[in-house]
């Protein structure tokens, strides 16, 4: 069997492998460990912990909103960038490559500040929209690399075959190449998704009321810093662990189709 090219752009989370030894896989230890710590804290000291937890739901909602909107636009932007990066048209290629270079060279935190406060002087967008624009702009570049690697992993013969059957270049791309490339692309996309969810904690700097900011508001009013940040960390951990499990199940499925 031909070795599939492995794409690894950023660290999302450790995706659990099926081969992990039985009961004591790292994922299980982390997941059930954090779950029991959470349960213990809530039951043993309901006074600060339950109050904190009650304060957070709308923050969690905002975190998910920003994540899902950003991933949607980032995928779209990534597809265009990925195709642009392998385009033979010099201009398109240059634009796509420059975009990736520029975005990868600027820290996400600085991009957030730039889009919100620097461009805010000229264009007025609501805070969540600014956050989504910045996140998708940044992750679009990373997604572009994922798409490019995925498309390049498909044998050249596929394109040649499609072209000789009378498909034009874009038809070949959308009907022949991309459906195959999906399999290579999906796992790293899942990984990027988790990385993006974690990075949304940065948008709290824009006064977006996400999970982290809600926690900070609670802590700064009640001075329960230890309790609040413990809970925030546990919630992020549980969310990413659940998502990484989903990604691993998806990967498993894709491998299944590959064999048959």
């Amino acid at each position: 069997m031909k070795e599939k090219s492995v794409i690894n752009i950023t660290d999302g989370a450790a995706i659990p492998l099926k081969k992990d030894p039985g009961l004591f896989s790292a994922w299980r230890i982390a997941f059930f460990g954090s779950l029991s710590v959470l349960a213990y804290l809530l039951l043993s000291r309901p006074k600060p912990y339950v109050d904190i937890l009650k304060f957070l739901p709308d923050g969690i909602l905002v975190t998910f909103q920003v994540t899902f909107c950003s991933i949607f636009f980032a995928l779209f932007l990534g597809l265009i960038t990925g195709i642009g990066r392998i385009s033979r048209n010099r201009l398109i290629n240059a634009i796509a490559s420059t975009y990736v270079e520029v975005v990868r060279g600027i820290p996400l935190l600085v991009q957030l500040f730039y889009i919100y406060y620097a461009l805010g002087r000229f264009v007025r967008v609501p805070d969540i929209v600014a956050a989504v624009i910045a996140m998708s702009f940044c992750y679009g570049a990373y997604m572009g690399e994922v798409f490019r690697a995925g498309i390049e992993s498909i044998d050249k013969g596929q394109m040649e075959a499609a072209r000789s059957l009378g498909f034009n270049p874009s038809q070949s791309m959308f009907y022949v190449i991309l459906p195959q490339a999906w399999r290579t692309i999906l796992p790293p996309v899942g990984n990027e998704f988790i990385a993006l969810l974690k990075d949304t904690s940065l948008v709290s700097i824009l006064a977006v009321a996400d999970l982290l900011r809600r926690g900070r508001e609670f802590a700064s009013e009640t001075f329960t810093y230890f309790e609040t940040y413990t809970l925030i960390a546990l919630i992020y951990l549980l969310i990413t662990l659940i998502l990484s499990k989903l990604v691993s199940i998806m990967e498993e499925r894709l491998r299944y189709y590959e064999r048959h």
């Binding site: 007025r124 609501p126 805070d127 700097i205 006064a207 900011r213």
Partner: peptide, 18 residues
């Protein structure tokens, strides 16, 4: 209510009409 890290950022948002 909207909470900012620094008062200057809140003023900037007010200035920008957000």
């Amino acid at each position: 209510s909207k909470s900012y890290d620094e008062i200057g950022l809140a003023m900037e948002d007010l200035f920008n009409g957000r």
